[in-house]
């Protein structure tokens, strides 16, 4: 057993965590900024943008992967253009950040929008009449007031990014030690009859998910206490 474990490379764990963490941070900022600005647009444009930004959530991830390859593929105009700067999303670990970002973004965007919609605009107005800058009001009043919803969005997006398989496998494939993530490794090991290995990574995945959920629960409890105290 231990002999077996010592042969396993932990690269997929490290790779999955960094992809999910980076994608999570990017999704956090992009999601709340889009949620804030889209809500302010004229109705027609808002409706169209809303559909486009939410689409990756309802499309099969493989379709997202297809579109990503269509845009960033090595022989596509944008892909060729980016290659001049040494940026290549196909078959690289940071390509995984891109695919995780696209798939996880709608979760953050939708939850943040819901949270913003229930925000009492009078708080922002009173901040303005007190002379506070709009940036201050956004980060120090609006975001904290909506933190429950935003936190939920971050967790959902992080979990989704961590478990992303379809778009990721299409865009960055599976190269052990280079692009392998936990979910692509599980599939690959299962496919090659390495049941023990697959089980190990499933267990890793379970532990991470449990830790994330536990952390969320603890955070929420602390917040409730802080409000009461």
């Amino acid at each position: 057993m231990f002999a077996y474990l010592s042969t396993i490379s932990l690269y997929p764990l490290w790779n999955s965590l960094r992809i999910a963490a980076i994608a999570g941070v990017l999704v956090f900022f992009a999601g709340i900024l889009c949620a804030y600005y889209v809500a302010r647009l004229p109705r027609v444009i808002k409706g169209i943008l809303d559909v486009i930004l939410t689409l990756p959530m309802v499309l099969p991830p493989t379709v997202c992967g297809y579109f990503l390859l269509l845009v960033f593929g090595a022989k596509r105009p944008l892909g060729i253009f980016l290659q001049q700067f040494g940026i290549r999303f196909v078959m690289t670990w940071y390509g995984g950040v891109l695919s995780a970002f696209v798939v996880a973004f709608p979760l953050m965007y939708r939850t943040a929008r819901g949270a913003f919609e229930s925000f009492d605009e009078n708080l922002a107005y009173s901040g303005q009449t007190l002379g506070l800058s709009n940036t201050y009001i956004f980060w120090r009043i609006r975001i904290p007031a909506c933190r429950q919803g935003i936190l939920a969005g971050v967790v959902l997006a992080f979990a989704r990014a961590l478990g992303e398989y379809g778009a990721t496998s299409m865009l960055i494939g599976y190269t052990p030690g280079r692009t392998a993530t936990i979910s692509t490794t599980v599939y690959q090991l299962w496919r090659t009859n390495d049941e023990m290995g697959a089980f190990f990574w499933v267990a890793v995945n379970l532990v991470i998910s449990a830790v994330v959920l536990l952390a969320v629960n603890l955070l929420e409890r602390r917040q409730k206490k802080a409000v009461k105290a």
């Binding site: 009492d120 708080l123 303005q128 009449t129 002379g131 009043i141």
Partner: peptide, 18 residues
Amino acid sequence: PQKRHVGYLFQNYALFPN
């Protein structure tokens, strides 16, 4: 509003809850 020097007391007082 930041430059108007006008104080506004809202119906629900709009205190920042956080």
